[in-house]
Design a protein around this nucleic acid. Sequence first.
DNA 1: AATTGGCACTCGGAGTGAATGAGTGCCAGG
DNA 2: CCTGGCACTCATTCACTCCGAGTGCCAATT
Lengths: 337, 337
Amino acid sequence: MLDDRKLAVLRAVIEDYVSTTEPVGSKSLVDRHNLDVSPATIRNDMAVLEEQGYITQPHTSAGRIPTDKGYRLFVDKLSSVKPLSVAERRAIETFLAGAYDLDDVVTRTVRLLAQLTRQVAVVQYPSLRISTVRHVELVRLAPARLLLVLITDTGRVEQRAAELPDSIDEDSIAHLRAVLNTCLDGRPLADAASVVVDLPSKLEPVDRPNAAAVLSILLESLVERHDEKVVFGGAANLAARDFSRGLSDVLEALEEQVVLMRLLGESGDPASLTVRIGSENMVEGLQSTSVVSTGYGAGDQVLAKLAVLGPTRMDYPGAMGAVRAVARYVGQILAES
Amino acid sequence: MLDDRKLAVLRAVIEDYVSTTEPVGSKSLVDRHNLDVSPATIRNDMAVLEEQGYITQPHTSAGRIPTDKGYRLFVDKLSSVKPLSVAERRAIETFLAGAYDLDDVVTRTVRLLAQLTRQVAVVQYPSLRISTVRHVELVRLAPARLLLVLITDTGRVEQRAAELPDSIDEDSIAHLRAVLNTCLDGRPLADAASVVVDLPSKLEPVDRPNAAAVLSILLESLVERHDEKVVFGGAANLAARDFSRGLSDVLEALEEQVVLMRLLGESGDPASLTVRIGSENMVEGLQSTSVVSTGYGAGDQVLAKLAVLGPTRMDYPGAMGAVRAVARYVGQILAES
DNA sequence: AATTGGCACTCGGAGTGAATGAGTGCCAGG
DNA sequence: CCTGGCACTCATTCACTCCGAGTGCCAATT
């Protein structure tokens, strides 16, 4: 149905369109790429490609531009991930190595990805799901107010304030802290939740009301609010490309945590490099954009996702290379710490 | 030099221009505002205002638009802060009250300000400078690697990882933790720094190399990296207005922490509401924008700043009202926690 | 059957020029 | 000092033409 040359034509159309932003015609195709056929032949091929829905013309008597379906075929069959240059790899390594904080790692990753791809980068904070509890700290902020700090083995720190029904003295706090730490230390967060539920029975009845308040907050930290945090950067890159109308929509979508979460959640296999093109994105406001995403984490556990977002007309091989490389390095950093 | 009517004309020009985005002419001025004079008179006034540099015409035979100098006069003399509506106040209150985390407070504040003003909002994290140490926690991540957690009375938590020269056992950690907490608890961070410097002498010689590593990291946390963190939001509002070219520059500037810090730092009196108009901003890339900023904090201590950034053509009274109100509420929230 | 050259056709974009009208400056008279 | 009148300016708009890149189709060639 589509012979080799037609595929080559599709690839050429996409490459040219991506680099020039302009509809590409049969003539310019033949001399930019050394296809050994005449423009007329290419025209016939293009007609077929158009009929099959891989390319389209913005108006009669203009060149062709790829459709989402065309990009899809390109990504699936016609291109391969472009590995980064040595310089780029080195840059990633040194830039990420300088981070001293989970926050810092994430922030730097976003900047890095945005810079490498000249697109918008989206990075999710590593999930707490499979980390284990390292320490629980309780600090009294006011007579009936505690600060609860949960430290995990991955070095992540979660903090929450808890309002208590009654005031609490330092002894009770110390006791509660001791109980919590002996029960929870070393436990995966997922298990910890079930442990926490059973805890009240181990405490003095007097302490229970306050403990209950602390524990319910702790529970929330353990199970609920984890994977929520997502940051993005490189919005300036959006403005630089033309995008023109719709930019506002895209920016709006990016500023919605929920939307970003959905965006990252959509890709099927969490671990592998996936590409969602234009209308394949169900997220409204982002249907004229493409998303290249992958999971990352320490070792082979997927702790979170990161992605690059740009116009459907983007350099897929390059973006895929950057995403894959950055994900790997971030994984290394996380594994070390 | 400038009689009352001329000032009224300037005010009218600014108000009209801000709401319509279009150069305003003498005719439309007289019937939009009930000035009891003829267009010709207004023209004369405008000629004077232009001569003095308060307004200008984009091209001959077009209406006038305000200059930065014009806006300056307007802000200083011709306008007053516009208080928020009851509904808006209530919205602020409930929205901020729902926050349970310093991070959350800041994030919500940004969104709130952006939404209220339909501009870009910039919020600096509250400084640790004048908080006091509540607790220092050391957690062993690896034999020669500690996580250092600094908790302040304002409920803020700073975390840093420290690489040690030697491995360290739990006893030494416990000892170090005890020493740190007895020496630092309740101290203002500013004083704490000097205490930390003297600490090594109080420790066993064997522990000193490791302790030194921990302490130097702690010192950094205490003095250096504090007020660095700034976030912004509402970039979509930028795109919505026309801004056209230059948008990319503005976005770029906003994504630079350093630039944002400078922007907030520029205003003279840290506590009060200040407005910097267009070219008054020395930050490059933001010279066609105006910034309305103020300090905020618990009680009357200024812990950080927040600001609204928009085109010079912005609703100053409204922005000032929103900034002032939000700063107050955030202050309350911080004071409570 | 596939490729090619030729040819008529389409149509967006750039360029031209005239008409429009909002807005101005200036001046003479109230 | 204010006002009405008047001539002038100039960005914007619209209609119109022209140009050329690009197309589809067809008959000829390989």
